[in-house]
């Protein structure tokens, strides 16, 4: 493991590594099984895998569970466990997106395919999905984003489309719920838009990228303080922090990465901390200040991986752990 600066000195008690047989992209911590992680492969072919790992914080080890590994068509663009504990069951629900939104039941020793969601009116095939978000206030809703410019709200129990919106002018790359009936999305058209399911005739543009043709790739809504969102622009080293009450002008732009930013995540337990990771191989944690600084904001923590970091997840049940994915590796960092 390379250490580009002194601050990133690696100590074995503060990180856990797992080497996968294939490149990794999708990741999810399970809220109901605190030591469970799902990893999705990123093989540019039809056949891909989803693996379930167990994390042991006392021994600092990660072990795969072969009986919980399953085939998945195409690389999963997002993985997400059910945001709550199922009422009377030891199994877990995992949603995956790709060619379809799919639902899987993760049991003690097997994984069962539960549902497949298709929103196409005229075909058995659905436009590829770029991402989705599971509503944690109303877990019967999942919102998906697609390259066909639409966002779809699904009724999970009935396996039906609740609403489909033509959300943007170009591909929609990410989507995030704010609350039970409000979500936001980012697009190749360069805008962040907010939608309220109680008023489907309108959306609100709260940000547009400074150069009209620069796509926005990822969106993170601060669940500790719903006034704030973060987004990233294609081929840019900036993390843009938005205040939904102050449209069009970011409240902050975090510019210490030395390459494109690939992933962002707000801290699940703090409203002012956010983590970002990118092509400069660095994961940075930022503490957003209460006063604007003329010299820009510096990160409070930095970690260097061996190569470009593609994905990042901050565990909500164990907020002292952050997961990053780079090449074939997944690493847990203790913060």
């Amino acid at each position: 493991m390379e250490n580009s600066t002194q601050e990133s000195h690696l100590r074995s008690e503060n990180s856990v590594s797992y080497e996968s047989p294939y490149p990794i992209y999708g990741m999810s911590f399970s809220p109901s099984h605190p030591h469970r992680l799902a990893l999705g492969s990123f093989i540019e072919e039809y056949t891909n895998r989803v693996d379930i790992l167990s994390f042991h914080p006392d021994t600092l080890s990660l072990t795969p569970n072969p009986s919980l590994s399953f085939d998945h068509p195409y690389p999963p663009t997002k993985l997400m466990f059910h945001p709550r504990k199922p009422p009377s069951s030891s199994s877990d629900l995992l949603a995956t997106s790709g060619d379809y939104l799919r639902l899987w039941e993760v049991r003690d020793n097997s994984v069962e395919a539960v549902s497949l969601f298709n929103n196409s009116k005229t075909s058995e095939f659905c436009a590829p999905l770029t991402s989705f978000d599971w509503n944690d206030i109303d877990p019967n809703r999942i919102a998906t984003s697609s390259i066909d410019t639409t966002c779809t709200i699904w009724d999970i129990e009935r396996t039906l489309v609740e609403t489909q919106l033509i959300a943007h002018d170009k591909e929609v790359y990410d989507i995030a719920w704010g609350e039970a009936r409000v979500f936001a999305s980012v697009s190749a058209d360069g805008s962040v838009r907010i939608f309220d399911l109680r008023d489907k005739e309108h959306s609100t543009i709260i940000y547009e990228s400074p150069h009209p043709d620069t796509p926005l790739l990822r969106l993170a809504w601060n669940k500790q303080d719903l006034r704030y969102m973060a987004t990233i622009l294609m081929d840019s080293n900036k993390v843009v922090i938005l205040d939904i009450r102050s449209p069009t002008t970011p409240v902050a732009e975090l510019e210490r990465h030395r390459g494109s930013v690939n992933a962002i995540a707000w801290a699940p337990h703090s409203s002012t901390h956010i983590c970002s990771a990118g092509d400069d191989t660095q994961a940075l944690i930022w503490d957003l200040p209460t006063l604007a600084s003329p010299t820009g904001i510096d990160p409070v923590c930095m970690y260097s991986a061996g190569c470009e970091i593609n994905q990042l997840q901050w565990s909500a049940v164990q907020p002292e752990w952050i997961a990053i994915a780079f090449a074939n590796k997944m690493q847990l960092l203790k913060v």
């Binding site: 497949l116 489309v161 489909q164």
Partner: peptide, 27 residues
């Protein structure tokens, strides 16, 4: 698994309205 889900895909082809919200840009 995928075959089972593929069968579901056919049965879930359905009619629903696709809504196009009008975007507002707040000043």
């Amino acid at each position: 698994n995928v075959e089972k889900q593929a069968d579901e895909a056919k049965s879930t082809v359905q009619r629903h309205q696709v809504i196009k919200p009008i975007p507002r840009a707040l000043t």
